[in-house]
């Protein structure tokens, strides 16, 4: 029995189509954001808290400039804080509406960056490792780094921000 040339070509074409049929990769955005949870500083134990009228914006230390609002008078329990991936530090200004408007806190995240190749379609991202968090203590009681790695395709809380009682 000879292998039929037509069958040969048909099978080859079928398999070629299957091989060439590429799985499209889904590219994720906002993967360089630090995730922060808000907690009450009233007790020693970490307990979720929700704040009303929260304002959050980025602060460019080099140019001494405020960036547009990230959170505009919202009720929040968690905050996504995008990092400046061109630098090793990113600062944010945090304000709560119920407190006098000139009372704010500044939070500075200090981190190391490691270039991460995702794919040809999605390109590169930076994986971050949070080294230190420096902050003022008007509204914020303390900040604890619970999970220092900010990785692509990972959705975990990185820091716990304890609010003054």
């Amino acid at each position: 029995m000879k292998i039929k040339p037509f069958g040969h070509v048909f099978l080859a074409a079928t398999i070629l189509l299957l091989v060439a049929c590429d799985e499209s990769s889904l590219c994720l955005s906002g993967q360089n954001a630090i995730q922060a949870g808000l907690y009450s500083g009233a007790s020693g134990e970490a307990k979720d808290t929700t704040l009303n009228g929260v304002y959050l914006w980025g602060y460019d230390e080099i140019n001494d400039a405020n960036l547009p609002l990230l959170i505009d008078s919202a009720r929040v329990q968690k905050m996504y804080m995008p990092t400046n991936i061109e630098r090793d530090t990113t600062s944010f200004v945090f304000r709560e509406q119920t407190i006098a408007s000139d009372i704010v806190d500044t939070i500075m995240f200090v981190y190391t960056r490691e270039l991460n190749y995702v794919s040809g379609d999605c390109g590169f991202t930076y994986n971050l490792h949070i080294d230190t968090v420096i902050h003022t203590i008007n509204i914020i009681d303390s900040v604890v780094v619970s999970y220092p790695s900010v990785l692509y395709n990972e959705n975990l809380e990185n820091v716990k921000i304890f609010i003054e009682p």
Binding site: S29, G30, N32, G58, L67, P68, L70, P82, T83, N84, I85, E86, T90, G123, F124, T125, Y126
Partner: peptide, 12 residues
Amino acid sequence: RYTISEDYWGDV
């Protein structure tokens, strides 16, 4: 060239 998109702080 590689470009990393960052909507808030600007692309790198």
